[in-house]
Amino acid sequence: MTLVLIFVGAAVGAPLRYLTDRAVQSRHDSLFPWGTFSVNLVGCLILGALTGAGTALPTPALALAGTGFCGALTTYSTFSYETLRLAEQKAYFYAAMNTLVSIIAGLGAALLAYTTTRAIVFQ
Rank of each mutant, 00 (worst) to 15 (best):
I103Y: 11
Y18R: 10
Y92N: 13
L64C: 04
Y81E: 13
I120E: 01
A11D: 08
A65K: 02
F37D: 00
G35K: 00
A53S: 12
F37Y: 08
N40Q: 07
V121F: 11
I104V: 15
V39F: 07
A49G: 15
T78E: 05
A87D: 08
L111R: 00
T83A: 12
A65P: 02
F32N: 02
L112C: 11
G35E: 00
I103M: 08
P60Q: 11
F37I: 02
Y76A: 10
N40G: 04
F93A: 14
L100N: 01
A105G: 02
Q89I: 04
Q123K: 12
K90L: 12
V121H: 06
A56W: 08
P15K: 14
F79D: 04
F37V: 02
T36L: 04
A63N: 10
V121N: 07
T78W: 04
T117H: 07
L3E: 06
P60F: 06
A113T: 00
A63S: 13
A72R: 03
T115K: 14
F79Y: 15
T75D: 01
A109I: 03
T99R: 01
L84T: 10
E82D: 15
T117G: 06
A87E: 05
L62N: 03
V4F: 13
P58G: 10
S80N: 12
F122A: 13
Q123L: 04
L57M: 07
L57N: 03
L86A: 09
E88V: 01
A23T: 12
I103Q: 06
T75F: 03
T59P: 05
L47N: 12
A96P: 03
F93I: 14
R17P: 01
C44N: 01
Y76G: 08
L84Q: 11
T83V: 05
L45P: 00
G35C: 02
T116N: 03
P33R: 07
A61G: 14
T36N: 00
L5H: 09
D21T: 15
E88W: 10
Y76K: 04
G52M: 10
A63Y: 09
Y81D: 05
D21W: 02
A65R: 03
Y81A: 10
P15S: 13
Y114N: 13
Q89A: 15
P33G: 03
Y76C: 06
P33D: 04
L107M: 12
R17S: 06
A14C: 08
G106V: 03
V8S: 04
T51I: 05
M1C: 07
H28T: 07
S30K: 10
V121S: 05
L111P: 01
F69G: 03
Q25F: 04
A105S: 13
A63L: 14
R22M: 10
F93Q: 05
G43Q: 06
L112Y: 08
T51L: 11
A87M: 13
K90M: 08
L100T: 14
T78D: 09
F122S: 12
Y18N: 05
A11C: 14
A23G: 07
F79M: 14
Y94Q: 08
T51H: 10
L107C: 12
A49L: 07
Y18M: 04
L41K: 00
T51M: 13
Q123H: 12
A53P: 02
T59A: 15
A10L: 10
Y114W: 15
T117D: 06
Q123G: 13
A96W: 11
M1R: 09
S30R: 11
A109P: 12
I120T: 11
